[in-house]
Design a protein around this nucleic acid. Structure first.
Length: 679
RNA sequence: UGCCCGAUGGUGUAACUGGCAACACGUCUGAUUUUGGUUCAGAAGAGUCUAGGUUCGAGCCCUAGUCGGGCAACCA
């Protein structure tokens, strides 16, 4: 009977509260308000999924509104791209709106404000106006135009509209409060003159409203109930409300602005300006370069709409800014593709394998399962013959017992084919392996049901038949930046962290012929390698596949651990290394619950700490002197450890004395006791 | 020097509004496996920024600090 308590994010809670306080459910309406000045990225996807998700959850319409009040930056190209991306993500908007649809209403309201003495035309230079604004800590000064008469303001504003003045000569300002602690309330600009054709209104207007005068009013006109934006707009809320106050009619719904944290992804940047810089500097091939965090880039890379929606869902919504690890995004796409991608075989770094006991000239078609996760996915045929390619790294002449691949004298299975045994290698004069010779157990054909075919072997390799293989270009991508948060370093430009090896092109890889028929949106798993999708540059003569993401690879992980190779950007490693625990960590762990113990258990804990303390250095211990007073257990553990170190000849210093002194004076008897013992 | 916002495992979020700090990713074991994938079972990892206070009881409420972020575009 009791439902699992559904956990709402803070915005859903606000909406639920409004509903509980009497807001009619059919009044709910949301909007996604992009400025058409760039392409959508994964951060926008969070906002899209939030707004459209809310619409779905509360059964409310969601408008798509292009916030197009600045013709110097905005273009139809972006409008089209944004529309496409949202639909591709799987969302449908109710009304398609444009701020520019409201230019007339906005203008009329501005006239009203002037008439009420709440707005004035300012003819000063931008510099002067900025100077008069003051600073966050010092109040601003009134403009000499602040007290211009209503009639004169009306006349000036009219002439602004009619194009009598040059761009930059006059602006309309709201008359609010030049000494407000909120800089945005210091007589903000409402209108400026811009001499540029607008992508929708053409040259009809030469004055354009600013964001603050347009956004809330647009929400109001569309009767948006909840206007959700990112954190940096928080200070705008006061102005948003002020603007609404000027025009608000009690019979209508009053929109409410609320703010949430934007979604950042590790190892990339997310601002349109920086993405544009990557494009313009030719660091990437375009907005839809598969390394870009744009929706179009992710799409080209092979990400699915479902995976991006899942990512947004798992990331959640909050008011605290942070960086979400790309591993979550990768998890989402693997999860989706594992269930849907067709399994195929392709060899990226080939070495020739000859099956010496397989008849020359013979070829046979073998059956390959399209997707083991989906019994209804069917099968396809794959040609087999005496000479194959296998992956170079799948063979070692001599290998340890942990190598589950082909070695001399060992058996492995060729996926969907036969069990083979490595026999000998052919090398060139430099000692490079040019051919591997093996024999195969002709009774072991996969799916034949013979006893031989059921045999357990150490590993399974993917392969292609040389004579049947088709060639293709493969593009593998690595993270675009070497740093987890490339734009978070003061004094360093994010471009310094660009990963020079983010793109690896394999000009000639060998694929099974089934792939000749691949179409643009098809998703494949190249078995044991990863997920791949056809690139839009591909033609039937020249196939090109993008690697979306690799399979999880515990083998590669093991390999790179001891060597600690620097060729792959290492995982973020803040704090303690995981998996192993040092003595000091162990002491902390035991100490934590120290005060809950008594009798034998207490004695045992103390003994363990003293024992572990033998392996602790002063450098490790010293930082723990700052342990919060309330973490008594930890401080006791530190005190005991300190005692052991002092016993071993550690020289006292002021830090140590201070720590002991604090312990002596502590309310906790156990701590005071330990302190006394080493005083 | 002002105003606003935030702070919970390595990361992202929860904690039904004061009651045993949970979930996911990641990490590590083990089992299964014709993908070193998937799946399954398990583990480690948090004294909830600090110091006080209210309370039988505080991640949550109050006070004061600390740290981080935002705010002075004719951008949105």
């Amino acid at each position: 009977m009791t439902e699992a308590p559904e956990s709402l994010n803070f915005l859903e809670q606000i909406i639920a509260e409004d509903l509980a306080n009497g807001l009619a459910p059919d009044k709910l309406r949301f909007r996604f308000p992009p400025e058409p000045n760039g392409y959508l990225h994964i951060g926008h996807a969070a906002s899209i999924c939030l707004n459209f998700g809310l619409g779905k959850k509360f059964n409310a319409p969601v408008n798509l509104r292009f916030d197009d009040t600045n013709p110097t930056k905005e273009e139809q190209e972006y409008v089209d791209a944004i529309r496409y991306d949202i639909e591709w993500l799987g969302f449908q908007w109710d009304k398609e709106c444009y701020s520019s649809d409201y230019f007339q209403e906005l203008y009329d309201w501005a006239i009203e404000l002037i008439k009420q003495g709440k707005a004035y035309v300012d003819g000063q230079s931008p510099d002067l106006i900025a100077e008069q604004k003051g600073t966050p800590t010092t109040p601003g000064k009134a403009s000499p135009f602040r007290d211009t008469s209503v009639e004169e303001n009306l006349d000036l504003f009219q002439r602004m509209k009619e194009g009598e003045f040059e761009a930059g000569t006059y602006v309309l300002r709201a008359k609010i409060d030049m000494s407000s602690p909120n800089m945005l309330m210091r007589d903000p600009l409402m209108y400026r003159i811009v001499r540029k054709a607008h992508h929708r209104t053409g040259t009809e207007w030469c004055i354009y409203p600013m964001y603050d005068w347009a956004h809330g009013q647009s929400d109001y006109l569309e009767q948006i109930s909840h206007s959700l934006c990112t954190l940096e707009f928080k200070p705008h809320r006061e102005l948003y409300d002020w603007c609404l106050d000027q025009i608000y009619d009690n019979n209508k719904l009053r929109p409410k602005q609320r703010e949430f944290a934007r979604r950042n992804l590790s190892y990339t940047v997310m601002s349109k300006r920086k993405l544009l810089e990557l494009v313009q500097s030719k660091t990437v091939a375009g907005w839809d370069d598969p390394r870009m965090p744009t929706i179009s880039g992710l799409r080209r890379r092979g990400y699915t709409p479902a995976s991006i929606r899942k990512f947004s869902e798992l990331s959640g919504i909050s008011k605290r800014d942070g960086v979400t690890d790309v591993s979550l995004l990768e998890f989402c796409i693997r999860e989706d593709l594992n269930k849907t991608a067709t399994r195929v075989m392709g060899v990226l770094d080939p070495v020739k394998l000859v099956i010496t006991n397989y008849p020359e000239g013979k070829e046979e078609m073998l059956v390959a399962e399209n997707n083991p996760e989906d019994p209804n996915a069917g099968t396809h045929e794959v040609p087999f013959s005496r000479e194959l390619y296998i992956e170079r790294e799948d063979f070692k002449e001599e290998a340890g017992s942990k190598f589950f691949r082909l070695t001399l004298g060992q058996e492995v299975r060729l996926k969907n084919a036969y069990i083979i045994k490595g026999e000998s290698v052919v090398k060139d004069e430099k000692g490079n392996i040019t051919e591997i010779h093996c024999t195969c157990d002709l009774d072991s054909k996969s799916g034949s049901g013979t006893e031989a075919s059921m045999r357990k072997v150490k590993g399974t390799l993917h392969w292609v038949s040389i004579q049947h293989a088709i060639k293709a270009e493969i593009r593998e991508y690595d993270r675009l930046f070497l740093d987890e948060a490339p734009d978070s370093h003061e004094g360093k430009d994010f471009m310094e962290f660009v990963n020079p090896d983010s793109l690896k092109i394999i000009k000639e890889a060998y694929l099974e012929p089934f792939l000749q028929e691949a179409k643009l949106d098809d998703k494949f798993q190249f078995q044991r390698l990863g997920y791949f999708t056809l690139d839009k540059d591909a033609t039937s003569e020249r196939l090109i596949f993008n690697k979306t993401v690799g399979l999880r690879d515990t083998w590669a992980k093991q390999q790179s651990q001891p060597a600690q190779q620097g060729n792959k950007p290492s995982q973020p490693s803040k704090g303690q290394p995981q998996g192993q625990r040092s003595a000091i960590n162990e002491i902390q762990k035991i100490s934590k619950k120290y005060t809950n113990l008594s009798g034998d258990k207490l004695a045992n804990a103390k003994a363990s700490i003293m024992n572990l303390a033998e392996g602790v250095s002063y450098e490790e211990l010293q930082p723990l002197f700052n342990t919060a007073a309330k973490k008594v257990g930890t401080r006791i553990g530190v005190m005991i450890t300190l005692g052991v170190l002092l016993n071993k000849g550690l020289v006292r210093n002021s830090e140590i004395d201070a720590f002991i002194e604090a312990g002596l004076n502590d309310k906790n008897e156990l701590l005071a006791e330990e302190a006394k013992a080493i005083k």
